[in-house]
Amino acid sequence: MTSSFRRVAVLGLGLIGGSLLHALRLTSAEVVGYDVDPSTAAAVSASGFSVAASDAEAVAGADLVVLAMPLPDVEAALRSVAPHLPATAVLTDVGTLKRPVLDAVRAIAPGTAFVGGHPLAGVEDTGWAAADPLLFRDAPWALVLEDDTPLDAWLRLAELVCDLGARPVPTSAAEQDAAVARVIGLPHVLAEALALTGLAGGPLGLSLAAGSYRSGSRVARTRPALVATWCDDNPALVTALDDAIARLVRARDELAADGSVLELATAGHDARIHWEQRRFDPVELPADREHLRAHGAGGGWVTAVLRTEGGVRMLGMRPVDA
């Protein structure tokens, strides 16, 4: 598989960075990793991957640099690596929230061709041992396209994401963060609350806990520090929680008045079935930032970036009812 990048440096080799290292080895790109944890770096090297001794060594000659460390570590990593970034390199990341990283890059490495990224492919397990070369297959991958994002850098990264089997979704940082508040942050907060509420019911309740409890609280198994990085500093999560709390209060009031949760159950059932049964049509997309952002906001994604003598052709999928 021919890569749109010649040399890729992945900084941070946990679940996402490690999976990306695995997946990139299936392309034509030269790939090198780096991790601040010596034991992780040693394990990756023992698995046959090229691992640099420093971040400066890793990014030397790279035309794509991926920041794959937790959000609290991004600023320090940026300050360390910024003096060594090749002038023509594209910089991206794989974190859940995009606005904090975008602000940090603008402050620490202004002028860098930065394309914020977020592969929505995580699982509860973390670390290099959980890395999976197929983790990104068919997964949405938000790619931030701001007014100052170099369009060619965005297109090259979208092409690579397609080659990895994922679905690039054009979006702005603000829209991405607002969306993940409801589909990542909120589910995690609710899962933690469910796990605690179930525990408070005593041993009998836990002995009777079955599929509903397991499914609803499953992501509470995620490392707490990671959950905090996905939820903290995202004002949109407050709005999402207000929405969920209002629905729960209405259900509580119905039950307190000897009513029913049928209305909530029906609406939730219909919403879930609608999501599962969405249909999509293929579409050709112009390489234009406004059209691309509108495509992403409407629920669409990119399926291919084709470079021809006449320029760039883009193919995508969009919801039938969009």
Rank of each mutant, 00 (worst) to 15 (best):
H269D: 13
A322V: 14
A257S: 13
R318T: 11
E254Q: 10
L194Y: 05
S39H: 13
W141V: 09
D132L: 11
L226W: 13
G311F: 08
L226E: 10
G117E: 11
R6Q: 14
D73I: 05
A29N: 05
A225F: 03
D242P: 02
T2D: 15
A53H: 08
D93Y: 08
L206T: 11
D147C: 02
A68H: 08
H274E: 15
C231S: 11
L264R: 04
L196M: 15
D163I: 05
A68Y: 07
L145H: 02
L64P: 07
W154C: 01
D258T: 07
P110C: 03
V8Q: 05
S19Y: 11
A257K: 00
P224M: 06
L15R: 05
R156E: 03
L24T: 04
D288S: 09
V238P: 01
L151K: 09
V59E: 06
M317I: 03
R106K: 14
P168C: 04
V36P: 00
V8S: 06
L97K: 13
L97H: 11
A236W: 04
D93F: 10
V180N: 07
G127S: 07
G296K: 01
A265E: 12
L26Q: 14
T303D: 02
G211K: 01
P83R: 05
L285Y: 03
P140L: 12
A104M: 14
R156V: 03
M69R: 13
A174C: 08
L91T: 06
D243T: 13
D35C: 00
G18T: 01
T96Q: 07
H84Q: 09
P83F: 06
V249A: 08
T27H: 07
H118A: 09
R293G: 04
G316C: 02
G117A: 10
L164C: 07
F280V: 04
D242N: 11
I184V: 14
A210H: 00
E175V: 10
